[in-house]
Design a protein around this nucleic acid. Sequence first.
DNA 1: TAGATTGTTAATCGATTAACAATC
DNA 2: TAGATTGTTAATCGATTAACAATC
Lengths: 207, 207
Amino acid sequence: MTLPERTVERLSEYRRSLLQCLEEGKTHIFSHELAGLHHNTAVQVRRDIMFIGYTSMQRKGYDVRELIDVIGDILDSGKGLNVAVIGIGNLGRAVTTYFVGKRSKLNIIATFDVDTTKIDRVISGVKCYPINRMKEIVEANNISIAIVTVPADSAAEVTAQLVEAGIMGLMNFTTVPLNVPDEVYLDEYDMITSLEKVAYFVKSPRN
Amino acid sequence: MTLPERTVERLSEYRRSLLQCLEEGKTHIFSHELAGLHHNTAVQVRRDIMFIGYTSMQRKGYDVRELIDVIGDILDSGKGLNVAVIGIGNLGRAVTTYFVGKRSKLNIIATFDVDTTKIDRVISGVKCYPINRMKEIVEANNISIAIVTVPADSAAEVTAQLVEAGIMGLMNFTTVPLNVPDEVYLDEYDMITSLEKVAYFVKSPRN
DNA sequence: TAGATTGTTAATCGATTAACAATC
DNA sequence: TAGATTGTTAATCGATTAACAATC
């Protein structure tokens, strides 16, 4: 059974708030409290948690630690997945440093770039490889997810290589839409669109 | 009348493809062609275009140049809006260089940072100011949108200052949810959530 | 004309919210 | 108990897709 996309997103967000709570020594949390930490309602929270089949300590709220574990069972694969960042400009470096160190089952274990001066450099503990060794490294290290932060004009080519190398999930941060086969999961994030959307709603607020 | 959020996003994407078409000398485009450039159907494209009230040269497809203009009338405010980037680490620099130069009615005209060594530095032609001059600079330059790329632990404080300075739209790239008054438009983008979502759907493909 | 394409209404799908009985 | 909170069904909302008449 597959969860709704939006629920998956929120569970990821809840988990981080819950980890924060744990650090602060909070052992239980009510649905309305968790809702308050996000832009969200208590009903939504309860429904999301219903989806994953966890039930609370009635009357005391959800057990923070247990809920973290249950969300982990859903979101993390058993052993975790390996991730590569393709293109190590400002954005690639930002994304890499962002993720490394975050306790997570998702491990960034390689970066790639065409720029030969970057090869073998280590960014936040992750080594940079030449892009023509991609297939070899991806296969050897069982990398299943790629984060694409290359310039727009090389995006299509790099994507074809990634698919060829057997990547199963892709995050696209370039400004052009990518094309992948159906079996590859693609998440497109377009900053320009997001900013233009903000500009639109700043001017014409949703009454 | 306010357009659906998803339609606004797609219009922004269409526009960039159309600009690309224009450069390539293409003067007209069919709905199914435009759909093919995005992950999208011809019906969706026509419905989006219906919303903005543009009608095509029947039988020859949409006039590329005209459609660009009509989308511009909807998305761009008359004179354009001014934007600031708050926090000029890797991500802040990436975002700034990303936008500058893109022909757009959205102008990044200032960046801010706490790090005194960065003050007065110029990134992609945009000057960096100390964060304690925020209100002054925002007001003097009529900045209405802020892109927040500061570390998580200063996000809340910076946001309060931005709201106080009169910012009307906010893009949040930090890992913590922000709180703003109702009249301020907030777009949250969370990379960690996006990556965890990709990981989830890689493992359990939507049948 | 026949075929391709459009604009628009109606039906469907997916996600959120309202309502409420059950529990402590 | 009364009040707070939960889990879950039903209603609503928003966005996508199907269907189709109209146009060139």
